[in-house]
Design a binder for these strands. Structure first.
Lengths: 119, 119
DNA sequence: GGACATTTCCGAAAATATTAGGAGATGAAA
DNA sequence: TTTCATCTCCTAATATTTTCGGAAATGTCC
């Protein structure tokens, strides 16, 4: 899976939030300082070439939507993160989060109960 | 905390693995294709300016070591990852890892026992 | 001392990423 | 039908990142 650059990722974050949207909608949803309309257009072309978005003509203009799901990208991004910082081990990341107080054990227990019920 | 670019990060990964080392040692530890000696030197200068490494003169040459600990950088990198992909929630990342079969519940239970004992 | 290897420092070329303007097309508004 | 706004496509400037060569300094080996 191709990687996203910072600016590309920002666009994708907006695209992922919506089913389908026009360039101007993307601009609207971008955080300030908003990029120029054409800047977003350029990135969408790049993202289309990389296979991250597709567009369809609606009326006389194009609407864009994500072709790579956020989940899939997250997955691959996480694998990189795991391999660079945790020797590829999710357990190590888990322990790290507990140590760093991102997760506390009580929360984990509750979550585990819920997850077990989903089995 | 400043961000590392891809190439800078690769250097840091090597520096983090060792207490202190010379440019040529870093080159040796880089994955193929190994960068030129001077390329590594340039990155070390950048990394020093960014505050990630320090150097001390040993004999007539410089030895480098990390001034930002891997743990600290991991922490800040993870926060970015969490906020971009999990609305800042470590619980969501945890659930994601379980769903994606990176973690299974048995492993987590075992780990939790260990972590509790450390309290 | 002269040849060779290593290191440092400076500078810049090459590659990549980011930003956006201009021109033409198209449709809507007066 | 002229004018205005919007959208697309093409193009290129700018900024950042990545890569490394050249020259000077220093030490080593005969």
């Amino acid at each position: 899976m191709k990687e996203l650059t910072k600016a590309e990722e920002q666009i994708m974050q907006v695209v992922w939030e919506h089913d389908q949207l026009f360039i101007k909608d993307i601009v609207d949803h971008m955080p300030d300082p908003k990029p120029a309309y054409n800047t977003v257009g350029t990135f969408l072309k790049i993202l289309e070439a990389k296979g991250f978005v597709t567009r369809v003509k609606i009326g006389n203009t194009y609407a864009y939507s994500a072709s790579v799901k956020k989940k899939a990208y997250t997955q691959s991004f996480m694998n990189g993160f795991l391999s660079n910082y945790f020797e590829g081990s999710a357990e190590k990341l888990f322990s790290f989060m507990v140590e760093e107080k991102k997760l506390n054990l009580k929360q984990v227990e509750d979550l585990m109960k819920k997850l077990k019920d989903n089995d």
